[in-house]
Design a protein around this nucleic acid. Structure first.
Length: 480
RNA sequence: CGAGGCGUAGCGCAGUUGGUAGCGCGCAUGGUUCGGGACCAUGAGGCCGCGAGUUCGAGUCUCGCCGCUUCGACCA
């Protein structure tokens, strides 16, 4: 930005430079900052508070599903990673390794977990002996390290926070059902907590998790038309059970390998919220995760002490009504405060000035549309509290309409190029060959995202790339 | 890992043909203000990325290094 910038918190034009807009929003709304090591980030209190809200919402759903929390070590013997062939191959390039303690070289190198299937598998082999020990459903809230070359706050960082669930069952069917069921839980979180519409479905062989039999993903459309993988669940078959010797004695007296699933959502979801709901003014947070749901801004309190008093009273009433409230009594102009809280995405601003007091009302401004309405002071707390669900639904509705408008049916590579350049997802039929995926990626930088929910007519169509008989209906998009 | 760009106050930047550093914002104190980014006054804040070299003298010129960044490549 030019040095003539008047406002320290001005953000880049969302239409002119989406990438810069994104980083500006992250930094200037004080969600995060860069860490001293390249690719690392600091979650500042405002950003971490969003994560805490996501954690709470997710955690209660997991527990309702019978999952218990545990914690496994961050350091994993390097040999563990080697045991599952695809797993090593998938993760080796981005794994950070501990080789020394002080001056002494370690006999066996230790890796910083990029994910925990291996350590957990190792422990599960000790804990599982009988069919009576199954199913076993554990989750951990943890950090993982993946040394990515290109990093961006929340979306891809060398270290990030997530949750990883690791479940074990006696049969393949149960394990696969678990992966599907958890995808449903993730979708619920995306839709109802983050107001994010998502496309869910199975991923292609090329895009699946290293070591999985099947990966299911949810993909969210960002405002620039790119897709963000917002969560994945994996059916692991008995791959890790064989690698880590997870066996149980079944009812019929036979020793059998167990079947597993694993699933995760991460702090990347915060990036999804920023890019799906943010606008020219900055962040726009869905009420369920907004650290501050309503900010009270007194206007002219310096001259009129009654304003300050009344504002404190109202903030108190809003808190009592169950809202997360901030009272902004700083000695700054109203315009500055409006911009400050809009940048931070606070869903509702409550303005209170002499004019309002005279009318016995407050002026309420919604972040989503900027609409201002006057509400009588007497019942403003209930009314504002009641607006929260409305706002979440409204945000979901808008994002859903946007997503729907940007999914384009494509039946040729030409269609596809046009659709992608216009910031759309491609709804396409595909022969199932890896070669076609590679070609599309090479030509248009797009990848397959998830299979379409409706596969019924796939065989009646031709592959969007090679023209041969199609096997699947699948979405292609440029992705983060 | 390939190509470009940039390192000067917290942030954004200026710094002429080499002469020992400035602007805006922010910050602190006091006062006036307050319905969409207020203003006045005073003040604090610098190893000019690091290291060599040229020179009487280097933010400025030369070389080396380090860091950041954009675009590629890579990326559950």
């Amino acid at each position: 930005m030019a040095n003539s910038d008047r406002f320290v918190n001005q953000i880049a034009d969302i239409d002119a430079d989406y990438t810069k807009w994104y980083t500006d929003v992250c930094l200037k709304s004080e969600l995060c900052d860069y860490g001293p090591v390249k690719g690392t980030m600091v979650f500042r209190p405002y950003g971490y508070a969003i994560w805490e809200r996501i954690q709470q919402e997710a955690d209660k759903r997991f527990k309702a599903y019978g999952v218990k929390n545990a914690y496994f070590p961050m350091l994993i013997p390097q040999s563990f990673l080697m045991r599952e062939a695809e797993h090593v191959e998938g993760f080796a390039p981005e794994v950070a390794t501990v080789t020394h303690v002080g001056e002494t070289e370690l006999a066996e190198k230790l890796v910083l977990r990029p994910t925990s299937e291996t350590v957990i598998g190792n422990m599960y082999s000790k804990w599982i002996g009988s069919y009576r020990d199954l199913p076993l459903k554990l989750n951990q809230w943890a950090n993982v390290v993946r040394w990515e070359k290109t990093t961006r706050p929340f979306l891809r960082t060398s270290e990030f926070l997530w949750q990883e669930g690791h479940t074990v069952f006696a049969t393949p069917e149960e394990a696969n059902a678990d992966a599907l069921e958890m995808m449903g839980v993730y979708k619920d979180i995306a839709n109802n907590v983050l107001a994010l519409p998502v496309l869910t479905g199975r991923k292609s062989e090329k895009e699946k998790f290293a070591g999985a039999v099947a990966t299911y993903g949810m993909e969210a459309m960002m405002k620039d038309g790119k897709s963000l993988q917002a969560g994945t669940t994996h059916y692991l078959g008995d791959n890790f059970a064989r690698a880590f010797d997870i066996k149980f004695l079944d009812k019929d007296g036979a020793h059998k390998y167990a079947y597993q699933a694993s699933w995760g959502i991460s702090t990347r979801l915060i990036g999804a919220v920023i890019m799906a709901h943010g606008d020219a003014r900055g962040l726009c947070l869905p009420p369920p995760v907004a650290p501050v749901q309503a900010v009270v801004v007194p206007i002219g309190a310096g001259k009129n002490p009654q304003v300050g008093e009344k504002a404190r009273e109202i903030a108190q009433k809003l808190e009592t009504a169950g809202l997360r409230v901030e009272l902004d009594e700083r000695d700054l102009s109203p315009g500055f405060k409006f911009n400050h809280w809009e940048l931070r995405g606070v869903p509702v601003r409550v303005e209170l000035g002499a004019r309002d007091i005279e009318a016995g009302a407050v002026t309420v401004c919604r972040r989503t549309d900027g609409q201002k309405t006057q509400i009588a002071i007497d019942d403003c707390a209930q009314k504002i509290a009641g607006m929260m669900d409305e706002i979440t639904a409204d945000m979901y509705g808008k994002a859903e309409a946007f997503t729907r408008a940007h999914v384009v049916a494509t039946s040729s590579l030409g269609d596809m190029e046009k659709a992608l350049d216009g910031g759309n997802f491609c709804d396409a039929y595909w022969c199932g060959d890896r070669g076609c995926e590679d070609k599309i990626k090479q030509l248009y930088a797009a990848t397959s995202r998830v299979y379409h929910a409706d596969q019924s007519d796939a065989h009646e169509h031709k592959c969007v790339c090679c023209g041969k008989k199609a096997k699947h209906r699948i979405y292609f998009a440029r992705a983060y």
